[in-house]
């Protein structure tokens, strides 16, 4: 089993590496096309801003590499949002793999933006959530969210109901930080590795 984490300008790679280590998976961090194409599993993490991340991916032609992947791919947080069609964050055209729009949370008195903290997910429908009970708590840090759609495989509520996880073909995405979501997050990472 060969797991690759795509290296780019959007943070938190070390935390994802450590989380994988805790479940016994040694992953390789790379931005080399051949290595990414060869991998059995590809993780596309991210903490940062959408337009600068897309610019970086395009400059290195990583956008085309990601779009062409056939093996299971897991986008995490910004990585998930970049799998979508468009983000309101600096009006960014994303990879367009999953036909879903990413919108900004409306700020409210009880819903400060960004959402930071633990929230519950429900409506779980994917092998990605094997042995994950409905209403499990996961850790979130984000100001933008993917709209609910036919591609939603987990739902969360923060003022609005949104897609906490999405799927299209071999592309999976989770909005929350699996690598910081305690045993629930580790189970989801394990499920992805075992897909």
């Amino acid at each position: 089993m060969n797991t690759v984490i795509i290296k780019y300008n959007a943070g938190n790679i070390q935390s994802v590496l450590f989380a994988l280590e805790r479940i016994g998976v040694q992953a390789e961090v790379t931005d080399e096309k051949e290595r990414i194409l060869r991998a059995d599993k590809v993780i596309f993490p991210g903490v940062g801003e959408a337009s600068s991340a897309m610019k970086y991916l395009k400059e290195r032609k990583l956008d085309e590499v990601i779009k062409g992947l056939k093996q299971p791919v897991l986008g995490i947080c910004l990585g998930m949002q970049l799998l979508c069609k468009h983000s309101e964050e600096n009006d960014t055209d994303c990879l367009g793999i999953v036909p879903v729009k990413v919108k900004k949370f409306p700020a409210g008195k009880d819903c400060k933006v960004p959402q930071i903290g633990w929230n519950n997910i429900y409506g779980l429908k994917s092998p990605l959530f094997k042995e994950v009970p409905s209403n499990s708590y996961i850790y979130n840090v984000h100001g933008y969210y993917a709209e609910k759609s036919d591609h939603t495989i987990a739902t969360c509520n923060y003022g609005v109901e949104y897609a906490a996880a999405i799927v299209k073909d071999n592309f999976y995405g989770v909005q929350f930080h699996t690598e910081k979501s305690s045993v629930v997050g580790e189970q989801i990472l394990k499920n992805f590795i075992e897909l």
């Binding site: 070390q14 935390s15 450590f18 989380a19 280590e21 805790r22 850790y139 930080h177 690598e179 910081k180 979501s181 305690s182 045993v183 997050g185 580790e186």
Partner: peptide, 11 residues
């Protein structure tokens, strides 16, 4: 910090 991140699974 590196050792904490390795062993602690919360933020």
């Amino acid at each position: 910090v590196r050792r904490i991140a390795m062993h602690v699974n919360i933020p």
